[in-house]
Write a protein that binds this DNA or RNA. Structure first.
Lengths: 170, 170
DNA sequence: CTTGGAATGTCAACAAGACTGACATAAACT
DNA sequence: AGTTTATGTCAGTCTTGTTGACATTCCAAG
């Protein structure tokens, strides 16, 4: 089994010490604390409105893919239509989101941010980006590549595909 | 400024293309989808019990730092004592957690998992570790290092310190 | 042209899990 | 002795999720 090609000076055992339960636990806890930071800044902005994280998510994905349908959004957000509808209704009522009847398929509703909606979206996004920008900058390109790589492995395959499709098309 | 040591062939501009708003957005969305996957497996187990994610968090950190106090847990979980107390009460009532009066300071309660509690903790942890193990394994050591690095930069400094203290002491 | 299914909206009831505010008790500190 | 700390508890509220039921509109297939 010892051929002349040594790709690493580490044995398999040493090479995979990052797979110990203790290393995994640290990753799990880091994920928990980081996610809290990740949502903290938008949450603080939303306190000024009568909105919560659910509204942020809807606003984000509508702003990101203008004209998306309710069903699309349901796939992305993985909540019930009743739950999403309550959020969408308040956003439409408050004039942040416009819901247009589909041109080809008139059953569908195409969702768009209004100017007011886009303003809030920018506010929330910039707050969240600011933290991410600082983190990326401090960690460096190589770390960011690894970060993205691991996140993609953690998510469900369907979500990975969905994210991929969004990134290509939208 | 140009010494003989070239650390990179990239200009500053090229070197920081990962800081564009579009790159940041991709990271933000990856974080969102990954966190959902991250919590999915324990959540599925908890459906069989009358417990939720809040119980999982309490069980995790008690199992990780046996003898921890309520106040400690409040700092870690960042919820109100009323919220935590409701969770702890059910766990104590159901015989998963033991609450002992502190030896030095009798105002404090030291929290421990019972055997039953440890069994559930193992079940939940192993489900979550399984996904992380697969992700780490697929992504490789270098990516995992970057992953951890970025997560630490994203979280609030107090949480980073707290996590550090836990990792050292506990 | 009718019928079945899909996309959407809405109503009602409910649950988990967060919150605030108020109050109580015991123990420790000053 | 008086104050602060650690914890527990009651009551009420909010957000966001759930299920179940039902209506409308419209596309598409028979």
């Amino acid at each position: 089994m010892q051929d002349q090609q040594q790709t690493s000076q580490l044995t398999d055992g040493e090479n995979q010490k990052f797979l110990t339960d203790d290393q995994l636990r640290k990753g799990i806890e880091a994920m928990f604390f980081a996610y809290r930071g990740f949502t903290a800044d938008p949450d603080k902005i939303l306190e000024n409105y009568a909105y919560g994280r659910a509204h942020h998510r809807a606003i984000h994905f509508i702003g990101r893919s203008p004209g998306t349908t309710v069903n699309n959004l349901l796939d992305i957000l993985a909540v019930t239509k009743q739950s999403l509808n309550r959020v969408l209704r308040t956003l439409v009522d408050d004039g942040l989101v416009e819901s247009r009847i589909g041109r080809q398929d008139k059953r569908e509703r195409n969702l768009y941010l209004t100017e007011k909606g886009r303003a809030l979206e920018q506010d929330l996004s910039e707050a969240q980006r600011k933290r991410m920008r600082a983190a990326y900058s401090a960690a460096g390109l190589e770390a960011v590549t690894g970060f993205r790589r691991v996140l993609e492995e953690i998510m469900d395959p369907q979500m990975r595909n969905l994210l991929q499709a969004m990134t290509d098309g939208g």
